[in-house]
Amino acid sequence: MKQIIKLILVLTCLFSFQVQAQKINDKQAILNLLEKQRTEWNKGNVEAFMQGYWKNDSLLFVGKSGATYGWQKTLDNYKKGYPNKAAMGFLTFGIKKVDLLTKDRAFVLGSWNVKQEKNELKGYFTLLLRKINGVWKIVVDHSS
Rank of each mutant, 00 (worst) to 15 (best):
L31H: 14
L31E: 14
N32H: 13
L33E: 06
E35N: 15
E35P: 03
E35W: 03
E35H: 10
K36N: 09
K36H: 01
K36I: 05
K36Q: 09
R38V: 07
R38L: 04
T39P: 00
E40T: 10
E40S: 11
W41L: 05
N42S: 05
K43P: 00
K43W: 13
K43I: 01
K43E: 08
K43A: 12
G44H: 05
G44S: 10
N45R: 06
V46P: 02
V46S: 05
V46F: 07
E47V: 04
E47D: 15
A48F: 00
A48S: 11
F49D: 06
M50S: 07
M50C: 15
Q51T: 14
G52S: 05
Y53W: 07
Y53T: 09
Y53F: 15
W54T: 02
W54F: 09
W54D: 12
W54H: 13
W54N: 08
K55F: 00
N56G: 08
D57W: 03
D57R: 03
S58Y: 13
S58L: 03
L59W: 00
L60R: 13
L60A: 09
L60T: 15
L60M: 07
L60V: 15
F61Q: 02
F61A: 08
F61D: 04
F61Y: 11
F61W: 12
V62E: 04
G63W: 04
G63S: 09
K64W: 07
K64T: 10
K64I: 12
S65Y: 15
S65W: 12
G66E: 12
G66S: 11
G66Q: 07
G66I: 13
G66V: 07
G66D: 14
A67C: 09
A67Y: 04
T68A: 02
T68S: 13
T68V: 15
T68H: 09
T68L: 10
Y69I: 00
G70D: 11
G70Y: 14
G70I: 07
G70M: 07
W71R: 11
W71C: 06
Q72S: 08
Q72I: 04
Q72C: 02
Q72M: 02
K73T: 13
K73N: 11
T74L: 08
L75W: 03
L75C: 01
L75D: 03
L75N: 06
N77V: 11
N77E: 08
Y78M: 06
K79A: 06
K79T: 10
K79P: 06
K80A: 14
K80L: 14
K80M: 14
K80I: 12
K80H: 01
G81A: 14
G81Y: 05
G81L: 08
P83F: 03
K85V: 12
K85L: 10
A86M: 05
A86E: 14
A87F: 04
A87I: 08
M88N: 09
M88I: 01
M88G: 06
M88F: 05
F90T: 09
F90I: 04
L91R: 11
T92I: 14
T92L: 13
T92V: 12
G94P: 01
K96Q: 13
K97C: 02
K97H: 10
K97F: 00
K97V: 05
K97E: 15
V98P: 03
D99N: 10
D99S: 15
L100E: 13
L101H: 05
L101T: 08
T102G: 05
T102C: 01
T102Y: 01
K103T: 12
K103G: 04
K103D: 15
D104G: 09
D104N: 15
D104K: 08
D104P: 02
